[in-house]
């Protein structure tokens, strides 16, 4: 089944076109990395797909629901782990998870079960009663992703999930992302190219608001005529950036 299908998706801010005629299809349970240098249009694309902003032109279908017409329906089955850790600072880990479970319509009993399950999966039990603002960066990011998953989304946006984490915390999160793969559709944005190569089924590179190339890491390297992905990324990004 198709998870995301965009049709000439376009977003303009006054005179500036942030995303131009984006045509993209992502399959269910695929892990898709959306890459690009700063200002390439990744964030605007994610904001449109997560129904935060409306497109200027075109449309996108998330599990056959239009982001223009059916945004309320779409919000029931998507979730996001934003780049900056998105937690309620004065609530404990357990309370943060209960809050999100409640916001997605779970009653007390259902919330309790889901919170217990997700705390086990994310090894959060030892900090369950700690306030979020007292957690280390690694735990905060882990909580932030757990909060995105407690609603059991069909589509998850992971925006720079390992940014600013030390090497141990990054490795821990990698394990979690690997576990999630194949059970949920994930759109990953990251500046760590090795992460996208290691985890992604396919990668799309955006340059100046347009999708420059799409394919597996090997396909992209081959098309760019480079031996490693970083060189391929730079070559493709610079080819349109001048």
């Amino acid at each position: 089944m198709t998870a995301i299908k965009t049709l000439n998706l376009t977003k303009k801010f006054k005179d500036k076109t942030a995303v131009k005629n984006l045509n993209l299809e992502i399959k269910e349970n695929e892990l898709f990395s959306l890459l690009g240098v700063n200002g390439a249009g990744k964030t605007t694309t994610i904001k449109m797909l997560s129904c935060l902003i409306k497109p200027t032109d075109g449309d996108a279908y998330i599990f056959d629901k239009s982001i223009v017409k059916d945004d309320y329906d779409i919000k029931q089955f998507i979730n996001v782990s934003p780049q900056e850790t998105a937690v309620a600072p004065n609530l404990t880990v357990e309370e943060n998870l209960q809050l999100i479970a409640g916001i997605y319509g779970n009653n007390k009993e259902a919330s309790r079960k889901k919170v217990s399950n997700i705390m086990n999966s994310f090894s959060l039990n030892e900090v369950a009663k700690d306030r979020a603002n007292k957690l280390s960066g690694g735990y905060q990011r882990r909580l932030s992703i757990a909060m995105a998953l407690i609603s059991e989304p069909k589509l998850l946006f992971l925006d720079e999930p390992t940014l600013g984490l030390d090497v141990l915390a990054r490795r821990e999160l990698w394990k979690i992302i690997k576990k999630l793969k194949q059970n949920i559709t994930i759109i990953l944005t990251t500046h760590y190219l090795e992460e996208s190569v290691a985890f992604s089924d396919r990668i799309g590179i955006m340059v100046k608001g347009e999708l420059k190339i799409i394919g597996t890491a090997d396909e992209i390297m081959k098309k760019a005529g480079k031996d490693n992905f970083e060189d391929a990324f730079i070559a493709l990004s610079e080819s349109e950036a001048v």
Partner: peptide
């Protein structure tokens, strides 16, 4: 805060 971004994406 990014926390609000999470809430804006929710069905609230």
């Amino acid at each position: 805060s990014s926390f609000m971004l999470r809430l804006y994406i929710s069905p609230m």
